[in-house]
Each structure stands twice: as C-alpha cells, then as structure tokens.
Design a protein around this nucleic acid. Structure first.
Lengths: 131, 131
DNA sequence: ATTGGTGCAAATGCTTTGCATAAAG
DNA sequence: CTTTATGCAAAGCATTTGCACCAAT
C-alpha cells in the first residue's frame, strides 16, 4: 500500500480521535489540513486501512459506519438516542469461543459483542424530560 | 396497532421463513399473496412490528437489514462472503452482564453477540477455488 | 515509466416520506 | 366518521464508481 499524504493524515487524525467518528466527521477534521481532499478519498482510504488492519470499522444498526484508530481488542456501547459510541472494558478471562455450542457448519472467524444503552448526557436529558 | 391484511401476511410469511430475509426478499414472497402491495408497506410494517417486539431486526455490517420472525433470544452468524445468516446455539449459563467491567457511565439495555464466518457453501467454493 | 491514488461529479442502492386514497375500528 | 394504513412516486442519504489527471516508487 502506497503511503500518500492523504492516507497518512487520515490515519493520524483518526488515531488522535477518541470519538469513533463517521467518515464525514473525519473528513471535516482532515479538510483542515488538506483543504482540497475529497470525501471519496476518505471513504476509499478508510476501507483500505481497515482491510489492512490498521484501523477498525464499526458497523452497527442501520446507522452510518464509524471508525476506530484503536485496534487493541475491545467492545463498544452505542447510545440508542444520540448515536455516540464509547469503549467498554470487559473481563479478560472471558472468551467468545467458550460460548458457542453449535455454529451450523459455519467456520467462525470472529465474534463481536456490542452493547446498546444511554450515554450519560442522554440519561440527564431523559431525567429532565428534555426531548 | 391496527391489524391489516398486509400486516398480517407480512408477519405470517416472515415467521415461516428461516432465512432471515431482507425487506425486498420478503417483499417478493408477500407479493405472491398480495400482488399490489408496495415495498414501502413492507418497510413500514417491518419497522412497526419490530418496535412492537413481534419480530427482530438484524443489523450487521453496512449490509442490508435482515428480519427474523423468531423472537426467542439467540445469536447469529453472518457469512462474510455471501451474506447468509444462520442461528447460533450458545451456552445457556452465559450472560453478557458477567462480562462488562466498566461501561463509562452508559446505562446498558442490551448486549448482542454476533459472529462472522464462512457458511458451508462458501467453504466448499473456497476449497475448489471457485470465485 | 508504470502503477496506484486522487478529485470531481454522477450513479447506486437501500430506505424513507409526502400525499391522495382506502380500509379499520 | 375518525384515525391509521396503503400505494405510488419522489426524495434522502451514505457510500461507491467512472474517468481524466496526478504522484509515488
């Protein structure tokens, strides 16, 4: 994979962010350093970088894809109200393989555990009956 | 929720299918009984039925949404090649709650475990180097 | 020099919506 | 008879693609 300016800056900026941005959120950030970059380049590179295992693609619920520069294995919670995503710490002595009994002939590569909930901000709004 | 003919037949047909169909796959099936039904009606009803908890919506990886008429709690494997979805049997003595250590202030409603792999058909094709 | 990447705009594909009409309670 | 659902076509929105140009090796 060729190291282009665009590719490097996309990777750098994503690694800085802890918010698991969508492609267009990252585009807005990257544009500040590369004003002429195209959204297509951002999409293409996010795809290539995640194929290469340098970043992670988070795909959840009909919503927009999100990307994570932190590739150390971990789980995520998704706020059902605002869409915010946070990391979740899980017990280290737990393994997905221990859980499957019958995979119906499928060869399983990967398991992923994800959570849905309300983020602290949306809990607050809820308790005040705002929206 | 009003019981219309369309709604009832959509629910009936989905409950019959074990393939976790997409909205348009189900539309094709339902059309055989209701030739004038619109795809919009199928989408609207699948949404209402899943809000009502009568069916489950499966959302996985950028792909099209799939629907499941079987609402008893269970996990799914998604074939990374053909998109096929199957049920997975898991150990009953295992609980998602036992796994989370720190949810960063999120109030967690639900956890879901899903798997990626190759279905038997795609394993076969792979071994024969077809596609 | 050759291959792969970029920017732009247009296309794609799934899903949703506005609106007039029809059916359910 | 009041409300909710339907069918149709059009719109929406995230993402992808074709193509001519450009840059990295």
């Amino acid at each position: 994979m060729r190291i282009t300016n665009q590719r490097e800056i996309i990777l750098q900026e994503l690694k800085k962010m802890k918010t698991h941005p969508t492609a267009d959120e990252l585009y807005d950030v990257v544009k500040r350093r590369l004003p002429r970059i195209s959204i297509a380049t951002v999409y293409r590179n996010l795809e290539r970088l995640s194929e290469a295992g340098l970043i992670h693609k988070l795909e959840y619920g009909g919503r927009q894809k999100r990307f994570d520069g932190d590739i150390h294995p971990h789980c995520h919670v998704f706020c059902v109200k605002c869409g915010r995503v946070c990391d979740v710490d899980t017990r280290s002595d737990w393994s997905i393989k221990d859980v499957v009994m019958d995979a119906k002939g499928f060869q399983i590569f990967e398991g992923s555990l994800q959570f849905e909930g309300l983020c602290p901000e949306c809990q607050l709004k809820d308790s005040k009956n705002i929206n």
